[in-house]
Simulated scan of single mutants.
Amino acid sequence: MKVIIPVVDADRSRNVLAASFHNAAFAAIYDTESKMMVWIETRSISEDVGNISLGLKRMGIAAVISQQMPPMALGLFVESGISVFKAESDDLQENILCFIDENLELFSSQMAFENSASCSSSCGSCSSTSCDI
């Protein structure tokens, strides 16, 4: 199974989670079968920036780990059959271990709406009235 995690960069901070995909130029992909990790530019996932879930499915990604998840994005991921897990911290390795040990909580709609209250993303893809956009 492949899981993708938005990270700060692919260099010095490659093991530090970004808040969400909207805040990340890079993502780490961990394959639980091969136990290999690769870093990619998030813009390479899909040409449709508003819906990367289809690109993730084409890449064989089955799960996402993120600190934040806008409600609309959560809906698109779930609709595409991609599980979304709430990160425990901003440490990539810690979250991978928690994922392997099945200790990460699935992102719920309630959690996504709670996170949207502090969203400062410029994505414009959600219709949250509490968004700072």
Rank of each mutant, 00 (worst) to 15 (best):
S66A: 15
T32P: 00
Q67S: 06
N103Y: 05
C119N: 11
F113V: 14
C119T: 11
I52L: 08
E114M: 14
N103I: 01
W39Y: 15
R58K: 14
F113A: 11
N95H: 06
V38P: 00
S83Y: 10
G60W: 12
I82Q: 11
V16H: 04
M36E: 15
F21T: 11
S120D: 07
Y30K: 04
D90F: 13
N103A: 07
D48T: 08
R43G: 02
I96H: 07
K35Q: 15
A27H: 06
V38I: 15
A62P: 03
A27K: 05
A25D: 13
V16R: 10
F107N: 09
F21E: 10
F113G: 02
A25Y: 04
S121D: 11
L106T: 05
V49Y: 13
V38A: 07
L76V: 06
L104I: 01
R58Q: 13
G81A: 10
S122E: 12
V49L: 11
S122A: 05
N95L: 00
K86I: 01
E79S: 14
A25T: 07
M37T: 15
E79H: 11
L56Y: 09
T32D: 10
M36A: 12
E114H: 14
V49M: 09
F113L: 13
E79N: 15
G55T: 15
F107Q: 09
G75S: 10
C98R: 12
S44P: 00
Y30L: 02
L54N: 11
E79M: 14
V16F: 02
S122D: 13
A19T: 04
A25L: 09
H22G: 12
S46K: 04
S13P: 00
S108C: 06
L54H: 08
R43S: 07
M59L: 15
A28L: 07
I61V: 15
L56K: 07
E79P: 00
M36D: 14
S46Q: 03
F85T: 01
D101M: 07
H22V: 08
V49C: 04
Q67A: 08
